[in-house]
Design a protein around this nucleic acid. Structure first.
Length: 861
RNA sequence: GCCCCAGUGGCGAAAUGGUAGACGCGGCAGACUCAAAAUCUGUUGGCCGCAAGGCCGUGUUGGUUCGAGUCCGACCUGGGGCACCA
């Protein structure tokens, strides 16, 4: 018996795969096989791989290896989402250049990924910070610009007044800048936007076609786009000297007669105008600008308003005056940036009205309520009902009243029924260095001009410093200053860079041919796209996945791509968590520093060095700050890569978080050894046709059942259940040891092991190769076809059906599969245990679910 | 504030509306060992019982059904997202 030595074995097989180019991507159409594009969300090169990455890439690898075995031409590439904020933070904190930091991290992580034995075609690797990539992205940006899909307008950013810099939401902590500690302000800047709202309907409608996406993600995208229909209606100014009025958007036009005020966003042009003449209003607007731009902050904050001197007329009654307020919870980006408040039927309006003493008039009468007595207390009524107190709408149900109000507004020429979206255009300008430069120059005479395509890429200069706050491109001696491509006069470059989500919105298309001169090789993309299976974290459910869908549509309309949906199948996998440990003084300590002892059923954690008791915290996402990180190398050293891959896929369903535990990885390691022992004990050269003695037949049946179960488990992303079947199967093999097996059982074992090597290959590819070779098989298991099963052998041969009486299990009967209902009923009623429980009862009904269960409904005689 | 998800043994979990707890971890008992580790075998939801067996049990609560962990309603608890982290 040779002990399984993963360190040597794993390295050996990786070298062989490399040398034979086992995972080279086949050419389009090669071998007449169907294509399969398996893709994991490419990583941000943040430093080192953690076991969360291991899980993500191992899952993708299961799919890639499985599909290869099933005869597909598989594309399984890898790259780096390499631009981003962390590189600039590193530059500021450690004085290292973002480029150096990024490429160093890539080098480390590439080696770590290779260590995992993931079946990637490394020849297609690229990083988004390579000029060869982002230069082509600039060309795509200019295409969008040419088509009017990229444009400039004012947008709101978080501004740190001390550091004089724009902050990301994550850099705003409790309304303060994370470095300076200064209160953050909202500031308006002119920025580039992509017109994703043009595709709002298409993006919603397309969701219906994405049958292999989680419902959850589709729902999140639908809510994010937030299509609603309602009424845009103008409340005319009451002041004769003013023309026009305040245009509001409402989804509840049926409640117009319950209006008690009109409120506008602090960023509304009218608010600017009022603030210019009213210092108190200006102070209120300034107060609203304090704090961050995130929706959570705005919506969860205290609702505040300022009553302007302005009044407007009700659109359906010029004699009815309503006050105009400025309110901090109105978003300028949604609808028209102004609302009318109907406190009786909207909770936020009600809170506002109660706070400021505004009238509350109910106009929707709930079913069963009495119009004379119905009143709204602290809770707005948002349910169904009939309009009342509402003049021409009286008596109409909510939906009919909405339609009638819209119709009247349209007839009167004061409003129109409209569809609006919560989705806003995608702001892509970032006032940062480490990103893709926006290929635009500004000429005093000609205005904004695209950089001619033959002058691309606009390369990021390397000679920048981060000793001063703000975007170093602004201070660069030469980068900014250039000439106008139109008139040749003096011009300055755009110094903003593109949001890194732009980088990841088309990379999957670049992988189809990463060497093409054009950004996207149309023929290659036609063959490989869409991505058949995309795998990544659910945190990308909306932004990345929505942007990629948008860009794919834009490029399809441009004729560059022939698909409108980039990802036919999506799987969102859970994270790897770990307990966190801290000392009595609150300092976090690493798992490697902690010794855990089990005494009976209680666990004790102490520091290895000092024996100090350690406080064990909940399992949480691994993070550097809590030091609850385990390194893949240490695991690979101790247990091998295969055991680590197996464990992260075996212990929880893949979409859920999995908790990393020492016991768990040891269990996986034990399985690897038990599997190896089975192969090691099997004499070579035994035939693969099992004989007909009972033990051989039983094992053969189990083998075929296992093939079916594992095939289904992989197809259905139920890796944990599949692996559980492998455990059970190995136990069965151990119960029929080779040393005491008859020739026919040996043959059945040979059949079983041949299947097993191929079935475990997606999960434990190195061990599978070693096992495959030990059987004397020709070629690599990575290139072997997936085993097939005989449905007749995989089917159950004898069934034990439970018999219930009134839903309680009272006995069981043995039946052949497919036995008729009558036979089942008869057997059940004859069973001794059943008879005993039926004493004193009379049978009312017998329900037979074929091959499942028999339920006898009985009641006292 | 809005949206989404999840609650099943000591723990991770399994279960097309049909035997709840497969499989793994941990525990307990045993084998091997001078001993320990490793490995192997048995056992392991709770309660009652010598046993056969019985009763209870999937966050709480109400409903649909011959039958509910699963479907529907209300609630409780925990987690995630909210547009400049990726």
């Amino acid at each position: 018996m040779a002990r399984y030595n993963p360190k040597d074995v794993e390295a050996k097989w990786r070298a062989i795969w490399d040398e034979r180019e086992t995972f080279r991507t086949p050419d389009a159409g090669e071998g007449g096989r169907a294509k399969y594009y398996a893709l994991e969300m490419f990583p941000y090169p943040s430093g080192r791989l953690h076991v969360g990455h291991v899980r993500n890439y191992a899952m993708g690898d299961v799919i890639a290896r499985f599909k290869r075995a099933r005869g597909f031409n598989v594309l399984h590439p890898m790259g780096w989402d390499a631009f981003g904020l962390a590189a600039e933070n590193a530059a500021m904190e450690r004085g290292v250049h973002p480029k150096t930091w990024t490429y160093d991290n890539i080098a480390v992580m590439r080696e770590q990924l290779k260590l995992l034995g993931v079946s990637i075609d490394w020849s297609r690797e690229f990083a988004t910070c390579d000029p060869a990539y982002y230069g082509r992205q600039q060309a795509l940006f200019l295409e969008l610009y040419k088509r009017g899909l990229a444009y400039r307008k004012e947008g709101v950013v978080n501004w740190d007044p001390v550091d004089m810099t724009v902050l990301a939401n994550e850099q705003v902590v409790d309304g303060l800048g994370w470095r300076s500690g200064a209160p953050v302000e909202k500031r308006r800047l002119t920025q580039w936007f992509l017109r994703i709202t043009d595709y709002a309907d298409d993006l919603i409608d397309g969701l219906k076609t994405l049958e292999r996406w989680p419902d959850k993600v589709r729902l999140m995208q639908e809510n994010w786009i937030g299509r609603s229909s309602g009424l845009k209606v103008t409340f005319p100014f009451a002041d004769e000297a003013r023309t026009g009025g305040v245009e509001v958007y409402t989804t509840r036009p049926d409640t117009l007669f319950g209006a008690s005020f009109v409120a506008i966003a602090p960023d509304h042009p009218l608010a600017d105008e009022i603030a210019a003449a009213d210092p108190a209003a200006a102070a209120f607007v300034a107060e609203c600008r304090r704090g961050g731009t995130s929706e959570a902050e705005i919506e969860a904050g205290e609702k505040k308003g300022y009553r302007t001197g302005l009044a407007v007329e009700h659109p359906f009654d010029p004699s009815w005056r309503l006050p105009v307020w400025i309110a901090n919870f109105i978003l300028m980006d949604y609808g028209t940036g102004a609302i009318f408040g109907c406190p009786a039927h909207d909770q936020r309006d009600l809170d506002f009205a109660r706070k400021y003493g505004l009238p509350v008039t109910p106009v929707v009468l709930p079913p069963d309520a009495d119009a004379a007595t119905f009143a709204v207390g602290d809770e707005a009524y948002v349910g169904p009902g009939v309009a009342f107190n509402s003049r021409f709408l009286d008596g109409l149900a909510v939906d009919a009243a909405k339609a009638a109000a819209i119709a009247r507004a349209e007839t009167d020429g004061i409003g129109a029924g409209v569809t609006v979206y919560r989705l806003r255009d995608w702001g892509v300008s970032r006032q940062r260095y480490w990103g893709c430069p926006i290929p635009i120059v500004y000429c005093e005479a000609c205005g904004a001009q695209p950089v001619p395509v033959d002058q691309l890429p606009v390369v990021l200069p390397d000679d920048v410093a981060f000793d001063k706050p703000g975007n170093p491109l602004l201070r660069h001696p030469t980068f900014r200053h250039t000439t106008c491509p139109a008139c040749g006069g003096k011009a300055v470059r755009e110094t903003d860079t593109l949001d890194t989500f732009v980088d990841s919105a088309w990379y999957f298309a670049r992988f189809a041919d990463p060497f093409a001169a054009a950004p996207i090789n149309g023929a290659a993309a036609d063959y490989w796209l869409p991505v058949d299976q995309y795998i990544g974290g659910v945190e990308h459910a909306v932004l990345h996945l929505l942007y990629a869908r948008f860009v794919t549509r834009a490029l399809a309309d441009d004729g560059v791509l022939s698909v409108r949906e980039p990802f036919a199948g999506l799987f969102t996998q859970g994270m790897v968590t770990h307990e966190s440990y801290r000392r009595q003084n609150g300092d976090w300590v690493e798992p490697a520093e902690v010794d855990i002892e089990q005494e009976g059923e209680t666990r004790r954690a102490r520091l290895i060095d000092t024996g100090e008791a350690v406080i064990v915290g909940d399992a949480e996402k691994m993070s550097k700050s809590k030091r609850n990180v385990v390194s893949p190398e240490a695991i690979a050293d101790a247990y091998g890569v295969d055991a680590a891959r197996l464990f992260v896929m075996s212990d929880s369903p893949p979409e859920r978080d999995v908790q990393w535990t020492t016991g768990g990885i040891k269990g996986a390691w034990r399985l690897a050894n038990r599997i190896w022992d089975q192969f090691d004990a099997q004499p070579p050269g035994t035939g693969v046709a099992p004989g007909d003695d009972a033990a051989a037949v039983a094992l053969s049946r189990s083998t075929h059942r296992l093939i079916k179960a594992l095939t289904d488990a992989i197809e259905g992303f139920r890796f944990n259940s599949g692996i559980a079947r492998v455990y059970a199967f190995v136990s069965e093999l151990e119960a029929s040891p080779a040393r005491s097996a008859s020739p026919s059982l040996l043959a059945a074992r040979a059949e079983a092991l041949s299947a097993l090597a191929r079935l475990i290959a997606p999960f434990m590819p190195h061990l599978a190769e070693e096992a495959w070779a030990s059987l004397g098989a020709v070629g690599l298991v990575a290139e072997a076809p997936w085993p097939t099963y005989d449905p007749a052998l995989a089917a159950e041969d004898a069934l034990v059906l439970p018999v219930q009486i009134n839903g309680k299990r009272r006995g069981e009967v043995r039946l052949a599969p497919g036995a008729g209902e009558a036979a089942a009923r008869e057997l059940a009623l004859e069973d001794d245990a059943v008879k005993r429980h039926l004493v004193g009862l009379s049978v009312r009904k017998v329900i037979v679910v074929p091959d499942r269960i028999i339920n006898i409904v009985a009641s006292p005689a």
